[in-house]
């Protein structure tokens, strides 16, 4: 439910229990938007959002990123089609949650092996999502009018994937503060199995494409606060040998 706040706090001050300030409001109300209007954002607005990414912090100021904006409807449709094709291919072998019994029992064996090799890519959540995509129940890129590909330069300082994350989140928050919507999509990885797309976007050493942002106008407006799991936080604020005190964040 969209919540209207009667007042927002000014930036640059803090009092206990004060209302959200505009930046916090954008942070707590940002939802990953997966349903967009057909018309894309104006080019000037995309450039403004990219500017938020350009000014993100990175280790050693290495700025290990390259941005690719995909706006062409033809290319987007082709990407969607190919992504579904690759996911269908993988899920034909891996998906042990659907199909007949014999198939499920056989698939479970090598699915378990692959889940151990790729525990993050085949976590229950993306596994379920890919299963749904293979069955044609949900799209990959959510029919977004714009994709911003965040290409990582692997020669960056320290930990380039993290810099990509910081840069992308800057852009997502900027987009939401301007009234648009955005969603992180990691499934673009599956396109990198096809030489066609690697060649098209120039993804060869030192570049690597792991994640992209879908962007566009929200339809319907879906931003709003949601409940999240309370977190256990440890505080080391006594002596060297004292045990930490724990609090529940969110309680």
């Amino acid at each position: 439910m969209n919540v209207k706040y009667e007042e927002l706090s000014p930036l640059g001050t803090y009092e206990e229990g004060m209302p959200w300030n505009p930046v916090e409001k954008i942070i707590v109300e940002r939802r990953s938007i997966r349903s967009f209007k057909k018309e894309p954002l104006p080019d000037s607005m995309i450039r403004r959002i990219l500017e938020a990414g350009r000014f993100a912090p990175s280790a050693g100021n290495s700025q290990p990123w390259r941005f690719i904006v995909v706006k062409s409807r033809e290319i987007l449709a082709e990407m969607e089609k190919d992504a579904i094709r690759v996911i269908k291919f993988f899920m034909f072998f891996l998906d042990y949650t659907t199909g007949n019994r014999v198939r499920r029992i056989i698939a479970r064996f090598y699915a378990a092996v692959l889940i151990r090799i790729l525990p993050n890519e085949l976590h229950p959540v993306p596994f379920g999502l890919m299963s749904q995509i293979a069955q044609g129940k949900t799209p990959v890129f959510h029919a977004a009018p714009i994709l911003i590909l965040l290409v990582e330069d692997r020669r960056g300082v320290s930990n380039p994937p993290m810099d990509i994350g910081i840069c992308g989140q800057n852009m997502v928050l900027a987009a939401h503060s301007l009234g648009a919507g955005a969603c992180w999509i990691g499934l673009i990885k599956v396109l990198m199995y096809l030489p066609k797309w690697r060649k098209k976007f120039g993804i060869k050493y030192p570049y690597k494409l792991d994640v992209c942002l879908a962007m566009g106008w929200q339809k319907p407006k879906a931003d709003g606060p949601v409940p999240r799991e309370a977190q256990v936080v440890e505080w080391y604020d006594k002596g060297l040998n004292d045990p930490p005190r724990t609090t529940k964040q969110g309680e």
Binding site: G17, M18, P19, W20, V28, P119, H123, P124, P225, V226, P227, R228, E229, A230, Q231, V232, V233, K248, G250, E251
Partner: peptide, 19 residues
């Protein structure tokens, strides 16, 4: 999720953002 993917510091209480 259970076993390998068990959640550790996330508790099962759901809370809205708190000021």
């Amino acid at each position: 999720p259970g076993y390998h993917f068990k959640r550790l510091t996330q508790t099962s209480e759901m809370r809205y953002p708190k000021r």
